[in-house]
């Protein structure tokens, strides 16, 4: 077909604005996830008892002197709400851009779906406050990262690359094996499940039995091992086979993130529960956990945010892998 050349040069379907909004959304949601994590770390979820108002104020009119310089919990919770509304507004912009500028009908609805999801997430956050229900808090905590991954994937769906994934690849013999695509999307699914397990560990209540908790910890550890193996397999696959750089790069990034995440996970355990073998070494034997300490909160929140980043990386890598394969199968490149 000749239009592959066409797309490469003119790329008439690409819209800078749509792509910019999608990337912008991803960029805003990441700090939003950090702040959301801090809300849980500091138990600040109930620092504002009402929603969508803040202590009766319209959220945007709530005086900065009260929240910015007020109690820490209030500052964290209120900035979470403000950032969340910002991402909602970007999502609205994305829908408008999709309907005006994007000619792919499915993409228009994708953008609408994304907006609905961010609204649902906002409502979940509100319900969490109004009902003070841990289950809602957990779901809210799990939808956030999913939304982040979808936003990151939207970045790919709107990119110049999406419209001409094989451009410049002819003759280079680059391809994406089916196995790679499967492994990478499997990693995406597993890392999300892992994140859900992590959320269970984070939102425990006193009424959970120690047996269930131990079961969860073991599942989380087993899954970490599985993910590490999966990501190593994927890395070996893309390294030894001639894979397109766009996939390879994300898989290698994923690999680094998983290793980092395992280190952060161990650290998260230590700063929450200490190691059960404190006599192992002198530093551990002398370490006292600082409840709500700075380093402690940073480690825990970083572990949570890196989890979201892993899901997003895996989502981006799988979207790219399948897109490339699809285009190749369509016979656009040999």
């Amino acid at each position: 077909m000749s239009d592959s050349r066409n797309e490469e040069q003119g790329c008439p379907q690409f819209s800078k604005l749509t792509h910019g909004l999608a990337v912008g959304l991803t960029v805003v949601v990441f700090p939003l996830i950090w702040v959301g994590g801090l809300v849980t770390t500091y138990d600040a979820g109930m620092a504002v008892p009402d929603w969508p108002t803040t202590y009766g104020w319209n959220m945007f009119a709530y005086p900065a002197s009260t929240w910015l310089f007020g109690p820490f919990d209030l500052m964290v919770e209120h900035s979470h709400r403000l950032l969340a509304s910002l991402s909602g507004m970007i999502a609205i912009g994305l829908v408008v851009a999709a309907w005006k500028l994007d000619r792919r009908p499915w993409f228009r609805w994708w953008a609408v779906g994304l907006l609905l999801l961010v609204i649902a997430q906002g409502v979940l956050g509100g319900v969490r406050v109004l009902l003070d229900e841990r289950l809602v808090a957990k779901i809210h905590g799990c939808v956030g990262p999913a939304f982040f991954a979808l936003a990151a994937a939207t970045g790919v769906l709107t990119s110049r690359w999406w419209f001409a994934p094989a451009a410049g690849m002819e003759g280079a013999g680059r391809r994406v094996g089916k196995a790679v695509a499967i492994v990478v999307s499997g990693l995406c699914a597993l890392s999300y499940l892992q994140l859900v397990l992590g959320a269970q560990l984070r939102h425990i209540t006193g009424w959970m039995s120690h047996r269930s908790f131990r079961g969860l910890v073991h599942a989380h550890l087993a899954m970490a091992g599985l993910l590490l193996m999966g990501v190593l397999v994927a890395a070996i696959m893309v390294w030894w086979k001639p894979t397109i750089p766009r996939v390879r790069r994300w898989v290698m990034g994923l690999c680094l993130l998983v290793v980092l995440q395992i280190v952060l996970g161990c650290a998260t355990w230590v700063v929450n529960y200490a190691l059960p073998w404190s006599e192992l070494n002198k530093t551990l034997a002398g370490y006292t956990i600082q409840a709500k300490g700075f380093v402690e909160s940073l480690v825990v929140t970083a572990h949570m945010a890196t989890g979201s980043l892993i899901v997003a990386f895996a989502a981006v890598a799988s979207v790219r892998a399948w897109r490339f394969r699809w285009v190749v199968k369509q016979g656009r490149v040999q």
Binding site: W110, L135, A146, C188
Partner: peptide, 19 residues
């Protein structure tokens, strides 16, 4: 986006049920 998006959605739902 058969493979990326729909899969993600599915995974999310499974996640919710597990939760």
């Amino acid at each position: 986006p058969q493979d990326g998006g729909v899969k993600l959605f599915r995974v999310m739902w499974v996640g919710w049920c597990v939760a």
